[in-house]
Design a protein around this nucleic acid. Structure first.
Lengths: 195, 195
DNA sequence: GTCTATATGCTGATAGAC
DNA sequence: GTCTATCAGCATATAGAC
């Protein structure tokens, strides 16, 4: 009794699987159409181009990621765990059906010499959301010291990005070691407070 | 009085600049030929294909990177600085003429659904060399404890990869913050020795 | 009206023939 | 070194089915 998926939905699902799972350039429009079971006219009417579909798929993916991260934060037992829960969210998100090979945003950006504006905007939004959310979560841990929170957030953003890039080097690698590195960085920030 | 560069050399230089600076898929064979000033026959005779040239360029790049890193290690003032000198090497290498947008190895791998064998091998070689070299440099800092050295090396590899991926998010970002994160990780490992 | 199926122009990459 | 055959992918047009 599932309702029939809309053609947009089918196209976005196909984009998730092919564009992010196998790469943008390597995936042809024909493959997308075949997987979605949709005719060319439908794609071009709804999204204008392959790139248009890519951007739409990134946007949907972004909101899904935020939900997963929100849940992970909500499940955390304290402020430090809330900050580190980004790694739990990463693992959860990766285990979901529409998993990307490493990171849909970084991966897409990597495939363009200089990315078209909407794509650059999507990556920037992802980066800025990560940074500001991490900063907010870091705040309570450093008594609201904005500079320290920002420094901590930048450090975690670096570790998160490293964890993603490691998926490219070694597809199976666990997020556990990234979490451990992040905790070491956190502990260092909380014990000392070096310049 | 410079000797005339060989056609192979010219092709490798062109590959460095275009394949790694702008991306593999976005660069056409014609652009490579035009920049190198050689004819198609030359490329296909010497390397067989665009991918063949790519792999050859990666191999040359790997040995150049090792030289830069060796120099940075040699210039370090002590064992801890030697371990962290990988970030100096990264900055130096990036400042050289044939700079990639972020990382030639990760970037190339990211552009293939599943990379052809020689390319996968090149990335694996890069990863393994990073890891083993970092492990060797970490050894003296942990009294030769192999497990701790390995853990430290893995952590630094993660940070290095993160620093590279951050270039994709924010092209101008400095290696300084990665170095600071790495130092925090190092300090944490050297003070406590948590499981 | 929305979608499918099919056919086609166009562009550009690859590889090889000359 | 030029030149060209082949091939693939993107985008669109047309006509018909639900």
């Amino acid at each position: 009794m599932s309702t029939r998926p809309s053609t947009e939905r089918k196209l976005l699902d196909a984009a998730d699987e092919l564009l992010f799972g196998r790469g943008v350039a390597t995936t042809t429009v024909d493959e997308l159409l075949a997987l979605a079971g949709v005719s060319p006219a439908t794609l071009y009417r709804a999204y204008g181009s392959k790139d248009g579909l890519l951007v739409a798929a990134l946007q949907r993916r972004q909101s899904r990621w935020l939900e997963v991260w929100d849940d992970a934060v909500a499940a955390a037992t304290g402020p430090a765990e809330a900050l580190l829960s980004v790694f739990d969210a990463l693992a959860t998100f990766r285990a979901q059906p529409h998993g990307a090979r490493w990171c849909a945003f970084l991966g897409s950006a990597a495939e363009y010499a200089d990315p078209p504006a909407p794509l650059a905007a999507a990556l920037r939004a992802d980066t800025e959301h990560l940074r500001s959310r991490l900063r907010d979560l870091a705040g309570p841990l450093v008594d609201g010291d904005a500079a320290r929170a920002a420094r901590l957030a930048d450090a975690l953003l670096l570790v998160v990005s490293g964890e993603l890039a490691m998926q490219l080097r070694e597809p199976g690698s666990r997020t556990a070691s990234a979490r451990a590195v992040a905790r070491a960085v956190l502990d260092a920030e909380l014990s000392g407070a070096p310049a």
